[in-house]
Amino acid sequence: MSYAYLFKYIIIGDTGVGKSCLLLQFTDKRFQQVHDLTIGVEFGARMITIDNKQIKLQIWDTAGQESFRSITRSYYRGAAGALLVYDITRRETFNHLTSWLDDARQHSNSNMTIMLIGNKTDLEHRRAVSFEEGQQFANEHGLIFLETSAKTAANVEEAFINTARRIYEKIQQGVFDVSNESFGIKVGMAAQQTGSVNVSIQGQQRSSSGCC
């Protein structure tokens, strides 16, 4: 299927916060009660519609323990959006947000849109981090914030789509040079045909040879 844009996302956060489950809920609309742990990276893709335009989301799901920066960092660099996830029932995953954020900020392009996600709202009775604390952290660091449940699907669509909407707005505002794929955005044939974005075909070809 042809798309107007392709956005690359990366999902980061401590191990066991539900990164893979969020991805599975978004791409397959299902929840696996028991999910094996991720080593290396997993990957998901889904088409969404914003402003009547088809946008393909390419989502890189990284292992939470994968502290080997040469792996995760090469993904930061090519990402337009990041979902930074913590588990509202485990405070240490919230406490580690700063180091994840520092790393993401240092190694990504400065316009990467970051969404902070407090996951596992289905476990309200075990909550250890309040909504207000999450919101405050997001405000302090200029992030968008949502609480989600990969299990019940609450806010999962919103998490991925709101991030895409923000990236789309930035494109409309001309924040990105969309011919440069290092921003994690690729212009598809659909956009070129409608002429909504002024990108030369040559520019496309040149940039597509250079990888993240």
Partner: peptide
């Protein structure tokens, strides 16, 4: 390479 997949991202499933 054209897909931008670095080998260390997936070979861990076979190797480690």
């Amino acid at each position: 390479q054209s897909a931008c997949i670095v080998p260390e991202a997936y070979a861990s499933k076979w190797f480690i």
